[in-house]
């Protein structure tokens, strides 16, 4: 049976603020239960730092159930760490070895500047959504929910795209800091649904333009985003968005 408690060395990125250069600090942690989650391990570290009068490590987290998209750690060179399909908060310490050195960094991408330590500013994602990630329908205007049947396959496919949690792992994992997986997930969701049709062309154009404006890089099809996405958002969404985009710019009247 593997050991129930781990002794670990943590190399953690510390950075006071946006303008600070930042650097790694090394900490030793003893007797971390393999049943603890990765963030609980960070809690233990912080509790130790606080009781010894040091500044705790700042990191983003909220739901701790893999759904809010708030947690965002780059662990041993991988967005959300070594386990596939898993957010940092759902990662458990049983996936690490006793005596291991774990390197923990923030998302690194120009459009996601560091706020402090492991916390980055992802408001660029909101701005892209604001540019067109919606169906323009005022409250109270809606027809009956069953007025327009939607083939189950389309609804399921739209759901798969809509399952994106907006964590930014795709951007962090991409060497170009491209946001294509994130943007294409939203574009796809609406492109697949009848409700998304009226604004279909306009939407993709606006969202892509905003993405470019905010400094996200180009997609060179390395597939790192899909591999690191904790929700398994498919790279086929990017292909769909490219088609949507071409369709929109080549459309008559454009």
């Amino acid at each position: 049976m593997s050991k129930e408690n781990l002794n670990l060395t943590l190399k953690v990125w510390r950075q006071k603020g946006k303008k600070d250069k930042g650097g790694f600090e090394t900490y030793k942690l003893k007797g971390v239960s393999t049943h603890a989650s990765f963030l609980e391990m960070m809690d233990i570290l912080n509790e130790e730092l606080i009781t010894t009068g040091k500044d705790p490590v700042a990191f983003d987290h909220d739901c701790r159930e893999g759904i809010c998209g708030m947690c965002s750690m780059y662990i041993n060179g991988r967005a959300h760490g070594p386990q596939r399909g898993t957010t940092t908060c759902q990662l458990h310490m049983r996936h690490f070895e006793d005596g291991e050195t774990i390197t923990i960094e923030p998302w690194r991408a120009t459009p996601f500047p560091v706020i402090k330590d492991l916390v980055v500013d992802r408001s660029a994602f909101d701005k892209i959504q604001q540019a067109g990630g919606y169906v323009s329908v005022n409250t109270g205007n809606a027809p009956d929910g069953n007025a327009v049947p939607i083939p189950k396959a389309d609804a399921d496919e739209a759901f798969n795209a809509a399952a994106c949690i907006g964590c930014g792992a795709c951007v962090a994992a991409c060497k170009n800091a491209s946001a294509m997986l994130f943007v294409s997930a939203k574009v796809s969701q609406f492109a697949l649904l009848p409700q998304g049709q009226p604004e279909r062309k306009e939407r993709v154009g606006k969202m892509v333009a905003k993405m470019d404006e905010l400094g996200f890089g180009n997609c060179t099809n390395t597939g790192a985003c899909e591999a690191e996405c904790p929700k398994g958002i498919s790279i086929s969404n990017i292909a769909r968005m490219n088609r949507e985009y071409l369709g929109a710019v080549l459309a008559p009247g454009n």
Binding site: V135, N146, I150, K152, A158, Q189, Q195, G196
Partner: peptide
């Protein structure tokens, strides 16, 4: 009941049966 209508109109991908209904 209006909540469901509103959400569908926004593009919320609720579960559907094989006939395409909610």
């Amino acid at each position: 009941a209006s909540i469901i209508d509103q959400c569908v109109a926004q593009g919320v991908p609720f579960a559907r049966d094989y006939g395409g209904l909610l």
